[in-house]
Amino acid sequence: MRVLYRLEFLILATVLMACQSSKTEPLPYLGPHQQLGDSTVYYRVDSFAFFNQDSQLVTAESLRGKVYVVDFFFISCPTICPVMTKHMKELYKRYQSDPRVVLMSFTLDPRHDTIPRLKRYAQKLGVSAPKWNFLYGPKEDIYSTAAKFLISASQEDDSDPLTIIHSGKFVLVDGEGHLRSYCDGTSKEEVYRLAEDIDRLLDEMADEGYD
């Protein structure tokens, strides 16, 4: 019996320690790495340019030093998008007063989701840029940008938005365009976990002297 107690104590202690160390450990770098001599070059997304709902150009460059969350959606999406948008709005509220955090929702249906429609959608939702950008651009650019963020998306019939198939992932990007975390944007629990990762990334950036 005594052995058992001791064992329990040990397990408890290990768990406690594990919890603590996970707080300070940096988030991983996702995507394919490259080894150049001694140094590792981490995968990053460093070039894109789209218009947001205010017709303002948002580029990878303009987001340097910001932490941003990316998802791909379309307004008439009858399945997973509404709950993704609802969870994005939770993040919007949580980081409303922190200018370091930006949200990016790219439309997969630019044919119907024009800039004025995106603007109206954002207004109805009660949100605005530059905190939450709804992004519009040529279709090929949007789908290739999804691939850059390691989010899968495709459309079978160009004229029918109901043939759009896409992942509900949220991807977390750091100040230099590295992908640092992701989650299933349709799951409330996973989005809460992503928010913890956002906080960790902000701590990390504060340590590195970003502001």
Binding site: P78, I80, K86, Y121, Q123
Partner: peptide
């Protein structure tokens, strides 16, 4: 539930 959500609360302003 896709639009009105499992708990019925919808998506403010949209659904």
């Amino acid at each position: 539930a896709w639009c009105h959500m499992s708990d019925g609360t919808g998506l403010e302003g949209i659904y």
